[in-house]
Structure formats: structure tokens, C-alpha cells
């Protein structure tokens, strides 16, 4: 299974069109602005990047992660695809 790193809103759209349904996703950088439209069980959000931007992460939906969790996701998935359109 792949891990998709989503860095922007346009990147989110391009990724959603092309990812396998149960692939893992991390929203980071400006990708965190997609929090309210992000769908699926396997979506994560880099909590520090959300905090930076004043985005609060609700307890349901995307799972907040730190860099240690980020590492664990990279261990479990390949390829790791970045989307930054």
C-alpha cells in the first residue's frame, strides 16, 4: 500500500483522483487546509502543521500525528508519493 503526502489543496485533488481507496494519506503543510473535506479511514494530519495554521483537529475524522507516527507510517507503506501541485 502507498503512503501519500499531501502538501496543498490542489495536490489533495490530484491525489484523490489517483490513489487506491485504502491507501494512507498524510495532510501536511498547506495540505492541512483539506481537513474538512478529507474522507476515508486512513487519513492523517500532521498536528504541528495544523496548529501553525490555526486549524483545530476534531476528535473524529483525520487522525492527528506527530513525526514519530509519521515514521511508523513510512515503515508500513511504499511507495511514498508527494503531491504539491
Amino acid at each position: 500500500m502507498s503512503l501519500h503526502l499531501v502538501f496543498s489543496r490542489a495536490g489533495y485533488k490530484a491525489c484523490m483522483q489517483r490513489k487506491v481507496a485504502d491507501d494512507a494519506v498524510i495532510l501536511l503543510a498547506d495540505g492541512v487546509y483539506c481537513l474538512n473535506i478529507a474522507e476515508g479511514d486512513n487519513v492523517h494530519i500532521l498536528e504541528i502543521d495544523a496548529k501553525v495554521r490555526g486549524i483545530s483537529v476534531p476528535s473524529h475524522g483525520a487522525k492527528p500525528i506527530d513525526y514519530a507516527d509519521f515514521v511508523v507510517l513510512t515503515e508500513a507503506h511504499n511507495p511514498i508519493v508527494s503531491w504539491a501541485d
Binding site: 503526502l5 502538501f7 513510512t74 511504499n78 511507495p79 504539491a84
Partner: peptide, 9 residues
């Protein structure tokens, strides 16, 4: 290596 991770511009 086992993993390649890219941080874009």
C-alpha cells in the same frame, strides 16, 4: 534504500 521520501518546493 528501502524508502524514498520527497519534500517539494
Amino acid at each position: 534504500t528501502d524508502r524514498y521520501i520527497e519534500f517539494p518546493a
